[in-house]
């Protein structure tokens, strides 16, 4: 039982991270139908920028805020510099642009930060808390708490503010959104900024647990993508459920079967969903776009 609890803790922790990354995919997909394969690089940027800023002597909270700001700025620049100029191109072209952007960002990170793994100190120490015979790291509580807070804030943004509602409206019907006076191009930029911020937060939260390096974005991005597909691409609740399910499945497989199969789970999950229920577990049943 303690063993099961231990696997569950680690599954939920990493699942929350996948959920944040998946939310980033969902936000950009809703705004533009683009699958942003640079999402993982935002995760990497968050962790790496925090490490660098903290090493430069900034207090950890300041370094964290600075790193999120850097990632948001990179997200906005990516939209303005690479996506916006190709706005009239097909979605496939835009997706390929994001793949190019992810390779570029990873390359720049490798030059700037080197190839070494970097460690970020846990936010409030490493002394584990024992719960039901299982070890719970304080950082796990940070991951779950911050993720829950981000989800609540995001929900409030999309359901309580007119600007958030305008983003949803633009996603659903860009023509009608333009006709009520919403600047639809600005909404796309905001969605990239928001997704970059979410990715960066995920990367910062997980860095004390798993270490970080210039290329952690590849795997975390793919896992987040798998979570988004699993839950139903474009669905916010789906992204959260998909992330948690994927994290749990990985942790239980690693624990009870073999950790060699851990990374395969995400891809098995994608295949299973595409065969059985291609629209995802919590698909939106989107109406036709005009």
């Amino acid at each position: 039982m303690a063993e099961f609890l231990q696997f569950t803790f680690s599954g939920v922790t990493v699942g929350a991270i996948y959920a944040l990354v998946a939310l980033g995919f969902a936000i950009i997909y809703n705004a533009s139908q683009i699958i942003n394969f640079a999402q993982g690089e935002f995760v990497m940027l968050g962790g790496m920028a925090t490490v660098v800023l903290a090493a430069a002597g900034l207090p950890l909270p300041v370094a964290i805020v600075g790193a999120v700001a850097i990632a948001v700025a990179v997200g906005l620049l990516l939209e303005r510099g690479a996506v916006e100029p190709a706005r009239h191109a097909s979605v496939v072209t835009l997706i390929i642009i994001t793949i190019g952007a992810s390779i570029f960002l990873r390359g720049v990170a490798q030059v700037l930060f080197g190839k070494d793994f970097h460690r970020l100190p846990a936010f409030s120490g490493d002394a584990p808390i024992v719960v039901g015979g299982a070890m719970l790291l304080p950082q796990t509580l940070w991951v779950l708490g911050v993720t829950a807070l981000v989800v609540v804030l995001l929900h409030g943004f999309f359901t309580r503010t007119l600007f958030g509602k305008a983003m949803l409206a633009t996603a659903h019907n860009p023509l009608a959104a333009a006709l009520v006076g919403i600047d639809t191009r600005r909404m796309l930029a905001v969605s990239f900024g928001l997704a970059a911020g979410l990715g960066a937060i995920a990367g910062i939260l997980i860095a004390p647990i798993t270490l970080t390096a210039y290329d952690v974005g590849i795997m975390l991005g793919l896992k987040g993508f798998a979570a988004a597909i699993l839950g139903g691409l474009g669905s916010f609740p789906g992204a959260i459920v998909g992330g948690l399910l994927l994290g749990l499945a990985e942790a239980l497989t690693a624990g009870y079967v073999s950790s060699a199969y851990k990374d395969a789970i995400a891809f098995v999950a994608i295949l299973a969903v595409l065969f059985v229920r291609p629209s995802g577990l919590l698909s939106l049943g989107r109406s036709e776009r005009v």
Binding site: L168, A169, H172, N173, A176, V290
Partner: peptide, 13 residues
Amino acid sequence: AQVPEGRQVFAPQ
């Protein structure tokens, strides 16, 4: 302001 053809309301809102 325009009322577009086919109404185009924001259906999920």
